[in-house]
Design a binder for these strands. Structure first.
Lengths: 196, 196
DNA sequence: GCATTAAACTAATAAGTGTTAGTTTTGCAA
DNA sequence: TTGCAAAACTAACACTTATTAGTTTAATGC
């Protein structure tokens, strides 16, 4: 009869969601059972339902929290009066730091969104398409301003968004590598491939 | 009582494996049931077991086929008497073409390997670590020969291996984009970020 | 036509799934 | 100390899971 201890400054629901994100990342959403999740907390499976609505709701919470964080950050960057290159650097930097600081959640949003149910699935994809579209616009502006080479903007965006996921692998290797070094290497690699 | 039609130049097991790869990609390994797989073929689930050993064996077949293809290709590239840059371009090109021509299989190997059971899981990771290590060596050579900037080789390798996965997204968008254009854009982006 | 074999079928098993109902315990406020 | 609500518990439901056993059908070689 252990109690679910609420994480600092968070509800018990938050504590469950956090544990769930960890398990979903390690084992995958479908391969994680509510009994496993409950056990990792030290409670019976049915007790979880005093705090959450359903297993799928946990996934929704994780995915949309992440999606929202990225959207908000991008909006901030768009507002700034800086060069395209600076904007891109900030976006890439934010992705890398999100993956370093919210590893489980970002990983789950990246890998398990397929398991979302409608209408959440469509909603999630819509939000991501919008995000990508706004990045494409930034790059188009950069080309127009001759800051960037005349590359295909859509390809560049997807290349960048894929490349930043390399941080996932560094987590896997329990890297003792310096975070800042990691970040600056990736940014340089991706930006130097774009600028004139 | 429909029969499993063997795909051209392949056994019935191959036909099942191919269908399985498609479903595993679309829905994930754990979320795909043998009944679904059977139905997609037009047969009862138990009938599959006349041809295959287990559900997990299907995943093993897919993952190790892909891993082997990459290993063989890399060995070929290593043998060639060409510059580091050319070698890297060929490796990147091979990744992109594999994803275009064997979309389901490569996707499954990239996303569902976690569901492999021991000892296959360890084996798979070993093979991938070895692959990454050999790419690191190529880059180290390129730095020594002053073909490449003095970047961190491990970071560069993971950035490249992540970036090539952007091809996944193009499949998702049923792109009408030219394959060659896609390939050359990605190669340029990644290589230009590395060379002096 | 007959024997053999490949490969389908039906039926069942044992385990695991998310989730609900109903009950008991716990901790706090009055 | 009592009353109440939060949150734990046990037990069960209704399915679904991969897989096996045993049987029947279809195709092949002689």
């Amino acid at each position: 009869m252990a109690k679910i201890l609420a994480s600092k400054n968070g509800t018990k629901k938050d504590a469950i969601t956090q544990k769930a994100a960890g398990l979903f990342r390690k084992k995958g959403f479908a391969s994680t059972s509510m009994r496993e999740l409950a056990e990792s907390i030290g409670v019976e499976a049915s007790s979880l339902y005093n705090h959450i609505g359903s297993k799928n709701e946990l996934l929704q919470t994780v995915c949309f929290k992440v999606a929202n964080d990225f959207t908000v950050s991008l909006t901030e960057v768009e507002k700034k009066a800086v060069s395209t290159v600076t904007k891109l650097k900030e976006v890439i930097g934010f992705h890398i730091e999100m993956m370093l600081n919210n590893h489980d959640e970002v990983y789950v949003a990246n890998h398990e969104w397929k398991q979302l149910r409608e209408p959440f699935l469509s909603n999630f994809l819509l939000q991501r398409n919008s995000y990508e579209g706004r990045l494409v616009e930034i790059i188009k502006t950069g080309i127009k301003k001759k800051e960037l080479k005349n590359i295909h903007p859509n390809i560049a965006v997807l290349t960048i968004l894929s490349a930043v996921r390399s941080v996932e692998f560094w987590q896997r290797k329990k890297n003792n590598i310096n975070s800042k070094e990691l970040e600056s290497n990736i940014i340089d690699h991706l930006i130097n491939g774009l600028i004139k």
